[in-house]
Amino acid sequence: MGKLRDPDCNPLQARAETVLTDYAARAQAASGPRGRKPRRRLSGRNIMIYGTLFVVSVYYLLPLWVMVVTSLKGMPEIRLGNIFAPPVEITFEPWVKAWAEACTGLNCDGLSRGFWNSVRITVPSALVSIFIASVNGYALANWRFRGGEAFFTILIFGAFIPYQVMLYPMVILLREAGLYGSLTGLIVVHTVFGMPIVTLLFRNYFTSLPEELFKAARVDGAGFWGIYFRVMLPMSLPIFTVAMIIQITGIWNDFLFGTVFTRPNLYPMTVQLNNIVNSVQGVKEYNVNMAATLLTGLVPLAIYFASGKLFVRGIAAGAVKG
């Protein structure tokens, strides 16, 4: 059909046959389908696709919804009602209580303590680990010294070793260095265990930059740090953002290192949250618990929604080897 409608598409045939054929083709074109293919908006296929995605989305959103509505209800309403129902009477009491009054052990100053601890842990840990890992990646990608690849391979394998295997040796190392239980010690831990993934990220990025740029800078007489700060860094802002996202969410969400390597006064938010919610004493205040949970999830969620595609790029970069 399609061919007949447009005889010009085959010049040989058009030349060989007469105008009559052209006429016939036009007549046929007038009766056959023509123009844009009609599109049915509600085809069975579309209903299936959008229907499935919609149901799955509801399932994924449900926990967030439950957290929000529960945290805005009073305890009487929770005891009587349905956990999925929106609050009849909105109260911010649970949020205030979770932030400023909830008890962990003897301290009753709420999650705010954990929040500030997490900030104090996350900011320096992210900065230090990213700086060190980016220099590693740069040295590996551009300077290619002897043995570099061997160390890097060990590092990547290290990413798969269960932390539990290295936990105790790390405790010993930190204790010997006098850092066990301190903030500095935890920064070291996050730098060490974050190193494989972030180094990989930077190595792959710097390898993807044209090597001739590095060569040109060497001919121009720039040294190791000169090239890093003057040539590489200004070109790498996106990848630094990606690394920031990975590290901040990762460190913020950490629980294991927080319990093993710090003392109670330095517990990060996740550890404190778990202690508040899963403490056995007293009456369970579900609304306060959910407010606390939501508060803890707020920082990574904010980063997630603000960063959008970069977050996706970050986890994809971390997951797919180069």
């Binding site: 969400n253 949250l273 919610v277 959910m290 999830g297």
Partner: peptide, 14 residues
Amino acid sequence: ALSFIVTGLVWQWI
């Protein structure tokens, strides 16, 4: 983006 702690506590509640 959420930690396992947050995940665990929400589902504990649900």
